[in-house]
Protein backbone atom coordinates (compact mmCIF):
# COMPACT_ATOMS: atom_id res chain seq x y z
CA UNK A 1 0.00 0.00 0.00
CA UNK A 2 1.46 3.38 -0.94
CA UNK A 3 0.73 6.12 1.54
CA UNK A 4 -0.27 9.26 -0.30
CA UNK A 5 -2.39 7.74 -3.02
CA UNK A 6 -4.25 5.70 -0.44
CA UNK A 7 -4.35 8.71 1.84
CA UNK A 8 -6.52 10.65 -0.57
CA UNK A 9 -9.04 7.89 -0.31
CA UNK A 10 -9.81 8.27 3.35
CA UNK A 11 -12.71 7.73 3.43
CA UNK A 12 -13.55 6.14 0.11
CA UNK A 13 -15.40 8.48 -2.23
CA UNK A 14 -19.15 8.04 -2.43
CA UNK A 15 -20.39 6.36 -5.57
CA UNK A 16 -17.81 3.62 -5.67
CA UNK A 17 -18.82 0.65 -7.72
CA UNK A 18 -19.22 -1.40 -4.54
CA UNK A 19 -22.08 0.20 -2.59
CA UNK A 20 -21.42 -1.86 0.52
CA UNK A 21 -19.94 0.50 3.09
CA UNK A 22 -16.65 -0.39 4.68
CA UNK A 23 -16.47 0.12 8.42
CA UNK A 24 -13.23 0.17 10.37
CA UNK A 25 -13.70 -1.13 13.90
CA UNK A 26 -11.08 0.30 16.23
CA UNK A 27 -9.23 -2.53 17.94
CA UNK A 28 -7.59 -1.05 21.01
CA UNK A 29 -7.83 -4.09 23.23
CA UNK A 30 -11.21 -3.14 24.64
CA UNK A 31 -13.38 -6.19 24.82
CA UNK A 32 -15.49 -8.13 22.45
CA UNK A 33 -14.75 -6.75 19.01
CA UNK A 34 -15.70 -9.85 17.13
CA UNK A 35 -19.36 -9.45 18.06
CA UNK A 36 -19.39 -5.87 16.86
CA UNK A 37 -17.63 -6.83 13.64
CA UNK A 38 -19.99 -9.72 12.97
CA UNK A 39 -23.11 -7.66 13.74
CA UNK A 40 -21.97 -4.93 11.35
CA UNK A 41 -21.43 -7.55 8.68
CA UNK A 42 -24.91 -8.93 9.28
CA UNK A 43 -26.31 -5.40 9.01
CA UNK A 44 -24.69 -5.04 5.60
CA UNK A 45 -21.18 -3.68 5.99
CA UNK A 46 -17.71 -4.77 5.20
CA UNK A 47 -16.26 -4.57 8.70
CA UNK A 48 -12.62 -4.92 9.55
CA UNK A 49 -10.68 -4.50 12.75
CA UNK A 50 -7.90 -1.94 12.72
CA UNK A 51 -5.12 -1.50 15.25
CA UNK A 52 -3.57 1.69 13.85
CA UNK A 53 -4.98 4.95 12.50
CA UNK A 54 -3.32 4.41 9.12
CA UNK A 55 -5.43 1.30 8.62
CA UNK A 56 -8.56 3.45 8.49
CA UNK A 57 -7.69 4.46 4.95
CA UNK A 58 -10.37 3.42 2.53
CA UNK A 59 -13.00 3.03 5.22
CA UNK A 60 -16.33 4.84 5.04
CA UNK A 61 -17.00 4.92 8.76
CA UNK A 62 -15.36 4.29 12.12
CA UNK A 63 -16.83 2.26 14.94
CA UNK A 64 -15.44 2.62 18.45
CA UNK A 65 -16.52 -0.42 20.45
CA UNK A 66 -15.60 -0.83 24.06
CA UNK A 67 -16.14 -2.88 27.14
CA UNK A 68 -14.47 -2.24 30.43
CA UNK A 69 -12.97 0.67 32.26
CA UNK A 70 -13.14 4.26 31.00
CA UNK A 71 -9.60 5.18 32.02
CA UNK A 72 -7.98 2.06 30.62
CA UNK A 73 -9.93 2.34 27.39
CA UNK A 74 -9.20 5.99 26.74
CA UNK A 75 -5.52 5.62 27.61
CA UNK A 76 -5.13 2.64 25.32
CA UNK A 77 -7.02 4.36 22.53
CA UNK A 78 -4.67 7.34 22.84
CA UNK A 79 -1.61 5.10 23.02
CA UNK A 80 -2.55 3.58 19.69
CA UNK A 81 -2.90 7.01 18.08
CA UNK A 82 -6.62 6.87 17.42
CA UNK A 83 -7.45 10.24 18.98
CA UNK A 84 -6.26 12.40 16.05
CA UNK A 85 -8.00 10.05 13.62
CA UNK A 86 -11.32 10.43 15.40
CA UNK A 87 -10.82 14.19 15.65
CA UNK A 88 -10.22 14.45 11.91
CA UNK A 89 -13.25 12.37 11.08
CA UNK A 90 -15.50 14.35 13.39
CA UNK A 91 -14.22 17.65 12.01
CA UNK A 92 -14.82 16.49 8.46
CA UNK A 93 -18.33 15.25 9.19
CA UNK A 94 -17.59 11.61 8.47
CA UNK A 95 -19.56 8.95 10.33
CA UNK A 96 -18.38 7.65 13.68
CA UNK A 97 -20.31 5.29 15.93
CA UNK A 98 -19.32 4.73 19.55
CA UNK A 99 -20.65 1.79 21.52
CA UNK A 100 -20.88 1.56 25.33
CA UNK A 101 -17.50 2.52 26.81
CA UNK A 102 -16.53 3.35 23.23
CA UNK A 103 -19.29 5.96 23.53
CA UNK A 104 -18.28 7.17 26.96
CA UNK A 105 -14.70 7.93 25.96
CA UNK A 106 -16.00 10.29 23.27
CA UNK A 107 -17.41 12.54 26.03
CA UNK A 108 -15.41 15.20 27.84
CA UNK A 109 -14.91 13.18 31.01
CA UNK A 110 -16.25 10.45 33.25
CA UNK A 111 -16.68 10.06 36.98
CA UNK A 112 -15.02 6.66 36.60
CA UNK A 113 -11.53 8.05 36.00
CA UNK A 114 -9.75 11.40 36.00
CA UNK A 115 -8.30 10.79 32.53
CA UNK A 116 -10.08 13.18 30.15
CA UNK A 117 -12.20 11.85 27.32
CA UNK A 118 -11.90 12.90 23.70
CA UNK A 119 -14.47 15.67 23.98
CA UNK A 120 -16.19 14.92 20.69
CA UNK A 121 -19.47 14.73 22.60
CA UNK A 122 -20.42 17.36 25.23
CA UNK A 123 -20.75 16.62 28.92
CA UNK A 124 -19.77 14.26 31.66
CA UNK A 125 -20.43 10.54 32.04
CA UNK A 126 -21.82 9.92 35.53
CA UNK A 127 -22.14 6.92 37.83
CA UNK A 128 -25.62 5.41 37.96
CA UNK A 129 -27.31 5.83 41.36
CA UNK A 130 -26.78 3.18 44.01
CA UNK A 131 -30.48 2.77 44.73
CA UNK A 132 -30.73 0.46 41.73
CA UNK A 133 -28.66 -2.58 40.76
CA UNK A 134 -25.33 -1.50 39.31
CA UNK A 135 -24.03 -2.51 36.83
CA UNK A 136 -27.19 -1.85 34.86
CA UNK A 137 -27.28 -5.13 33.04
CA UNK A 138 -30.00 -6.29 30.71
CA UNK A 139 -32.70 -5.12 28.34
CA UNK A 140 -34.13 -1.68 28.86
CA UNK A 141 -36.51 0.57 26.95
CA UNK A 142 -35.36 3.21 24.48
CA UNK A 143 -37.36 6.43 24.45
CA UNK A 144 -36.62 8.60 21.45
CA UNK A 145 -36.51 12.27 22.44
CA UNK A 146 -35.24 13.76 19.18
CA UNK A 147 -35.74 12.64 15.61
CA UNK A 148 -32.65 11.01 14.23
CA UNK A 149 -32.18 8.48 11.44
CA UNK A 150 -30.09 6.31 13.77
CA UNK A 151 -33.12 5.46 15.92
CA UNK A 152 -35.69 4.99 13.16
CA UNK A 153 -37.94 2.09 14.09
CA UNK A 154 -36.70 1.54 17.63
CA UNK A 155 -38.70 3.97 19.78
CA UNK A 156 -40.05 1.96 22.72
CA UNK A 157 -37.93 -1.08 21.86
CA UNK A 158 -35.65 -2.88 24.30
CA UNK A 159 -31.91 -2.75 23.88
CA UNK A 160 -29.17 -4.58 25.78
CA UNK A 161 -27.17 -2.52 28.26
CA UNK A 162 -24.19 -3.42 30.43
CA UNK A 163 -22.69 -0.42 32.23
CA UNK A 164 -22.25 1.36 35.53
CA UNK A 165 -21.78 4.88 34.16
CA UNK A 166 -23.89 6.77 31.67
CA UNK A 167 -24.26 10.13 29.95
CA UNK A 168 -26.76 12.60 31.39
CA UNK A 169 -30.23 12.69 29.84
CA UNK A 170 -30.29 16.42 29.11
CA UNK A 171 -28.85 18.33 26.19
CA UNK A 172 -29.37 18.80 22.49
CA UNK A 173 -27.09 15.89 21.67
CA UNK A 174 -29.36 13.34 23.38
CA UNK A 175 -31.38 11.40 20.82
CA UNK A 176 -32.86 8.67 23.02
CA UNK A 177 -32.95 8.02 26.73
CA UNK A 178 -33.45 5.04 28.96
CA UNK A 179 -34.24 4.80 32.65
CA UNK A 180 -32.44 2.97 35.45
CA UNK A 181 -32.75 4.81 38.74
CA UNK A 182 -32.32 7.94 36.68
CA UNK A 183 -32.98 8.89 33.08
CA UNK A 184 -29.76 8.77 31.07
CA UNK A 185 -28.60 9.25 27.49
CA UNK A 186 -28.90 5.98 25.59
CA UNK A 187 -28.28 7.34 22.09
CA UNK A 188 -26.46 10.59 21.40
CA UNK A 189 -25.23 12.51 18.41
CA UNK A 190 -23.07 15.55 17.80
CA UNK A 191 -22.72 16.15 14.08
CA UNK A 192 -21.43 12.99 12.44
CA UNK A 193 -20.43 11.43 15.75
CA UNK A 194 -23.20 9.17 17.02
CA UNK A 195 -23.09 6.72 19.87
CA UNK A 196 -25.12 4.24 21.85
CA UNK A 197 -24.80 3.36 25.51
CA UNK A 198 -26.36 -0.02 24.75
CA UNK A 199 -24.80 -2.79 22.69
CA UNK A 200 -26.47 -2.95 19.27
CA UNK A 201 -24.39 -6.02 18.50
CA UNK A 202 -26.10 -7.82 21.41
CA UNK A 203 -29.57 -6.34 20.98
CA UNK A 204 -31.02 -8.94 18.60
CA UNK A 205 -33.14 -7.56 15.75
CA UNK A 206 -33.51 -4.04 17.14
CA UNK A 207 -29.77 -3.80 17.44
CA UNK A 208 -29.43 -4.84 13.84
CA UNK A 209 -31.90 -2.11 12.95
CA UNK A 210 -29.77 0.54 14.65
CA UNK A 211 -26.63 -0.67 12.87
CA UNK A 212 -28.49 -0.77 9.55
CA UNK A 213 -29.69 2.79 10.23
CA UNK A 214 -26.10 3.82 10.85
CA UNK A 215 -24.97 2.22 7.61
CA UNK A 216 -27.74 4.01 5.73
CA UNK A 217 -26.34 7.25 7.10
CA UNK A 218 -22.87 6.18 6.00
CA UNK A 219 -24.12 5.68 2.46
CA UNK A 220 -25.56 9.21 2.53
CA UNK A 221 -22.45 10.83 3.95
CA UNK A 222 -21.08 14.02 2.37
CA UNK A 223 -19.21 13.15 -0.80
CA UNK A 224 -16.67 15.91 -0.42
CA UNK A 225 -12.99 15.30 0.13
CA UNK A 226 -11.94 13.26 3.09
CA UNK A 227 -10.66 14.71 6.32
CA UNK A 228 -7.56 16.84 6.08
CA UNK A 229 -4.44 15.22 7.42
Amino acid sequence: MSGEAQGQREPAAAGDADETPTVAVLDYGAGNLRSAQRALQRAGAHARLITAAADAQGADALVVPGVGHFGQCVRQLRAQGFEPLLGRWAAAGWPVLGICVGMQILFESSEEDPEPGLGLLPGVVRRLPDRVSVPHMGWNVLTVVRDDPLVAGVDGAHAYFVHSYAPEAGGDHVVATSFHGVAFGAVVRAGSVAATQFHPEKSADKGRRVLANFLTGVAQRPAACGPAR
Binding site: R131, V132, S133, H136, W139, N140, S178, F179, H180, G181
Partner: peptide, 9 residues
Protein backbone atom coordinates in the same frame (compact mmCIF):
# COMPACT_ATOMS: atom_id res chain seq x y z
CA UNK B 1 -40.48 2.41 39.10
CA UNK B 2 -36.79 2.50 39.98
CA UNK B 3 -35.99 1.02 36.61
CA UNK B 4 -37.67 0.01 33.40
CA UNK B 5 -35.25 -2.89 33.01
CA UNK B 6 -36.91 -6.02 31.67
CA UNK B 7 -36.65 -9.34 33.47
CA UNK B 8 -34.49 -11.73 31.46
CA UNK B 9 -35.35 -15.26 30.36
Amino acid sequence: PATTLAARV
